[in-house]
Design a protein around this nucleic acid. Structure first.
Lengths: 338, 338
DNA sequence: AGCAAGTATGACATCGATGGCATTGCGCTT
DNA sequence: AAGCGCAATGCCATCGATGTCATACTTGCT
């Protein structure tokens, strides 16, 4: 795979020392600003390093210093999805304050690949591993076997595993979406959701359903659509829903991609159904789209914070932080039923 | 900074070997699937590794194998900007095919920080470095001094430096935007642009200006606004433009953030000016926003490809790939002048 | 002048793996 | 029966830095 790569050879500290006419150790001291180096010696070493274009070999240093790196891994879905990139951005900002650097990898929402990435990251000796798991199975993420490399789960609870987690209040958000539409007198409400193997999706639906149950409304049941995994299929699904003999008067889309698809389906309609989407997005204000908003950047920030605390020695039991959601009314969710 | 971090101690290959009752080297051979290991021995070693929860120390391996890692660095603006995250996504997809992993860092669009990041990455012995430079000065990115670590510039030409680059046809796109609006009979055209120290911004403006010159139109000159760095200021700037006694009949926004701001300013206006924005964006179709589109994911992919070719040994002169742009008409850019 | 304390420097082991070479033992050829 | 080839294994050096300890040389003080 990467067998035939050409290695780059850089000058070593030994060469710098030789050029400066001092021992390896003295050169090391000089460049690291350690005490007890004669000013003149220090000058000569720095000059030699400069001449040779010397740069410290961080790999060697890390090995000597205990075999761990200053890297933190993030395993998530594609960064092209603004949810994941916002999370990554939040993580990066937090980590950098502690001199840690972020390595990202895309799990393709596939458990097998995810497992391989975990192995690769652990071999690379990341200080901590942040994961937005792809599915239900988290056994491959078992912390016990990881000898103290802290894991933090984002957006998916680590069922059964004792790991820190930062979650979105998915059920609460789903319930709020349902209540919002009920409050605007909707009863026939469609739900368009992603793969049901994704726990956050199930939680959003469950929350929605609990809101329906609370008022004894069952008129949403014929309109539940799950396993809708991309914007195009969401668009099509919404069109089909609207073509029904008795169409829903409102639609709840359970993530940002699906909301995008729904907006395409509703575009230009004279009398569109109400729409509320989970996840806020850029330009939702301009489009007048009502959403269940939360702060994905904060999600990343908090996860990085938890990870850092562990890395810095915190030893307590697993913690879970829940990020709250709120309905942001912008028009689309307040349209009355037809 | 990261001084007080707690080190994680994992079992070493020596311990695995001891438990299996073989020598270090035999254990190494067994786990790496090298030939000439007795089946029974291999089994014992793998079992011992399993029992101890052994995981190879990639840092040590990398040191032994030549002191370079399998990491590729990306230095860019904040991933929260969809342009950068799309680029990162394209890079990641390409790199993974070659067993390379992406490390991202945010330069805050600040040259000093960028310089520090380059140093940090070179110390970490990345195989290649992809940079979306923050400003004009690229001397800190001089390749000569980097002993063969390939640099690839994205979106900004490496003036004077012999490095590969992948650029967007900014001038062509700016010209196309200008011609598009001229073709719809606009003459008083406003340009809202970001910091003029950013070369791509200048190129977009230059392209636009060349289109104006070609037809002898100078009516845009009073409406040029640069140094507009975020969506909020873009919104305000557009409002001010429209409040002029003789307002422009069309607006060209020179990047995605500014287009966002302009859309907010135009929202709800009875008789909005025409609008064309540089950079495509999600939901532009729903909003009916005409844009100069290009493919940021392809930009990343091509950059990663160039970098990989260097890493794999390619030795030719510096190459430049230009990604083309195209006007996508969606309504906002075709509105006639008032 | 003589000795303790301190400064500047160097020799060597070490982090955890892999490469090269040496060694052992066994089956087979002739 | 001696010798050869090959499989299986082990020993030691090595990658490039840093930590420990030893040593030579000043300096200051009595």
């Amino acid at each position: 795979m990467s067998e035939d790569l050409v290695a780059v050879r850089r000058p070593t500290l030994t060469q710098v020392a030789a050029l400066a006419g001092v021992s390896l150790k003295t050169a090391s001291r000089a460049l690291n600003g350690e005490p007890n180096v004669a000013p003149e010696t220090g000058r000569r070493v720095r000059e030699a390093a400069d001449v040779l274009g010397y740069r410290l070999n961080g790999i060697a240093r890390e090995l000597r210093r205990g075999g761990t790196s200053a890297l933190v891994g993030l395993i998530s879905g594609d960064l092209a999805n603004p949810f994941y990139s916002a999370v990554a951005s939040g993580i990066e900002r937090e980590l950098r304050q502690h001199g840690l650097q972020l390595v990202t990898a895309n799990n393709d929402e596939d458990a097998v690949r995810e497992r391989a990435l975990v192995d690769a990251f652990l071999e690379r000796r990341v200080r901590a591993l942040l994961v937005v798991p792809s599915g239900e199975q988290h056994q491959h993420l078992d912390v016990e076997g990881n000898h103290g490399v802290p894991f933090v789960f984002l957006d998916r609870a680590p069922d059964g595993l004792a790991a820190d987690a930062v979650l979105i209040d998915n059920a609460g958000g789903g319930r709020a979406a349902g209540e919002h539409l009920l409050g605007h007198r909707h009863r026939r409400i469609a739900v368009v959701a992603d793969l049901s193997r994704l726990a956050p999706q199930r939680a959003r639906i469950d929350g929605f359903v609990s809101a329906m149950r609370a008022v004894g409304n069952a008129a949403w049941e014929p309109y539940l659509r799950t396993e809708v995994h991309d914007a195009r299929r969401a668009e099509q699904t919404v069109r089909e829903l609207l073509d029904l003999r008795l169409p829903p008067t409102a639609v709840f889309t359970a993530n940002n991609r699906l909301t995008t698809g729904a907006l395409r389906a509703l575009r230009g309609l004279a009398d569109p159904p109400a729409l509320i989407g989970f996840d806020d997005f850029d330009l939702a204000d301009v489009l007048g789209t009502t959403v269940v908003a939360h702060d994905p950047m904060a999600l990343g920030r908090e996860a990085a914070r938890l990870a850092y605390e562990r890395v810095a020695g915190h030893r307590g039991p697993a913690r879970t932080i829940v990020v709250s959601t709120s309905v942001v009314a912008r028009g689309s969710g307040e349209r009355p039923p037809r």
